[in-house]
Simulated assay, not measured.
Amino acid sequence: MASLPNSKPDRVLVKTTLPIRPTPLNSSRQPVTTGRLIIRSIVPEDLESLHVLRTQPEVMANNPQGRIDKDLEETQRRLDLFLPPKDEETFNFAICLKETGEMIGTGGCYRFTSMFGWPIIGYMIRKEFWNQGIVTEFLQSWLDMWRNLPREDAEIEVDVRTLRDGDGPVLEQIVTWAVADNIGSQRVLEKSGFENFLTWTEPDLRNTEINVDLKAFRYFLTK
Rank of each mutant, 00 (worst) to 15 (best):
P64A: 14
G101P: 01
I68E: 10
N63C: 12
S49F: 02
P64H: 11
Q76P: 00
D69L: 04
E58I: 10
T100K: 05
S41Y: 03
L53R: 07
D87R: 08
K86S: 12
P31W: 03
I68M: 14
S27W: 01
L53T: 05
N92F: 13
V52C: 02
G35W: 01
T90C: 15
Q30P: 00
G101K: 07
R29W: 02
L47T: 09
R77F: 01
D46Y: 03
Q56D: 15
E102L: 12
A61T: 06
S28V: 07
I42L: 15
K70Q: 13
D87Y: 07
E99K: 15
R54K: 14
N63I: 12
S27K: 14
E74A: 11
E99H: 06
F91I: 10
E102M: 09
E102I: 10
N92M: 13
E45W: 01
L50E: 01
M60K: 08
P31V: 03
R67N: 10
K86L: 14
T34Y: 04
M60V: 11
N62L: 11
D80V: 03
K70I: 12
L47C: 09
F82G: 01
E99W: 08
T90A: 15
T33G: 00
D71G: 09
F93K: 01
K86M: 12
R40E: 03
P85Y: 05
T100R: 07
S41G: 06
R67F: 11
M60S: 06
E45C: 10
S49Q: 09
G66Y: 08
S28N: 13
S28T: 12
M60R: 10
R78D: 03
S41T: 07
M103F: 00
R78C: 00
R54Y: 14
M103P: 00
H51P: 06
H51F: 14
I42R: 03
I104T: 06
I104K: 05
